[in-house]
């Protein structure tokens, strides 16, 4: 019959751990024990606002990397990385023709340990690729089929928003690469049918000799806030890049994730 006196003392780390998890602070944050029992595994997902994006249990085939490639998850992760690094970049960057370029140069030369712009830019490229691959995976597994038609559509809009986010961000360094890429890209808008002044049908929209659609009123002008890529375009792209599009994308992502759950979770054969 063993007595308590012969039992060796618990190791230091175990004792410390037990002490920490027994404090009132710890218990106020985590309202359940370690997720090693079924009950706690349910609670860990249900009581955490971030984890409760997930269901408590999920199809085995749906957690396989070779099935999902984790591309949707990586896309969301990259969006968060872009938000965080973008926020830091906003501390140093002023969206005016006079300052923008010099602020970027300063960022590269004066800010210690600065690879935030690098991570922001490469993350943006990577996000475009992961979105494509996510969409490709969803197509190849037929996951857009009923009942997930609507969520596929939300996804298509998110793909477009990702490209627009990247496109608007491309202008902000205000170097030769930036303004000419945006000039080439936005020149297309000039040819919008009816709404661009070099588009088919735009001449029809005239009152006598007065043209309604001209270089100062067409789709490209609305996009750039001017007749060329200048001060107006820089401010517009900045606002869209930092506030407008992320806001819409954020809302649509919430819808996207919600609908993944509501449409039956990750797809699998019936």
């Amino acid at each position: 019959m063993a007595t308590n006196a012969t039992k060796p003392p618990e190791p230091f780390l175990t004792r410390t751990w037990d002490y920490i998890t027994d404090t009132q602070i710890w218990k106020s944050i985590f309202r359940h024990g370690m997720p090693s029992t079924s009950r706690n595994r349910v609670l860990v997902v249900m009581t955490n606002v971030f984890l409760h994006l997930h269901p408590v249990k999920i199809r085995k085939s749906g957690v396989r990397l070779k099935f999902t490639w984790c591309m949707g998850g990586l896309t969301f992760f990259l969006f968060l990385v872009e938000t965080f690094t973008g926020l830091l970049l906003m501390f140093y960057y002023r969206p005016t023709v006079a300052y923008a370029y010099m602020d970027i140069i300063d960022l590269a030369e004066q800010v210690p340990l600065g690879i935030m712009r690098e991570i922001h830019r490469w993350g943006a490229h990577a996000m475009v690729i992961t979105v494509w691959l996510h969409m490709f995976r969803v197509f190849m597994t037929g996951s857009y089929k009923p009942p997930r038609e609507f969520n596929w559509n939300v996804g298509v809009i998110l793909l477009v928003l990702t490209l627009l986010l990247s496109f608007t961000g491309y202008l902000l360094p205000w170097d030769q690469l930036a303004i000419w890429a945006i000039t080439v890209g936005s020149n297309m808008a000039r040819a919008t049918p009816l709404l661009g002044y070099e588009g088919p049908g735009a001449q029809l929209l005239a009152l006598g000799d007065v043209k309604m659609v001209h270089a100062g009123s067409d789709a490209r002008f609305a996009l750039l806030g001017g007749r060329f890529v200048g001060e107006g375009a820089l401010l517009r792209f900045y606002v869209l890049h930092c506030v407008g599009i992320p806001l819409i994308a954020g809302i649509l992502m919430a819808v996207h994730f919600w609908r993944v759950r509501k449409d039956g979770g990750i797809s699998g054969p019936v």
């Binding site: 997720p35 984890l51 408590v56 249990k57 999920i58 199809r59 085995k60 085939s61 984790c70």
Partner: peptide
């Protein structure tokens, strides 16, 4: 995706969250 018990459900914690953590 529907054989060898792949139809069955598994715990999100730890099976899915650890995969996600690794990917991140």
């Amino acid at each position: 995706e529907a054989s060898n018990g792949e139809n069955e459900k598994t715990w999100v914690w730890p099976d899915l969250v650890y995969t996600e953590l690794l990917c991140m």
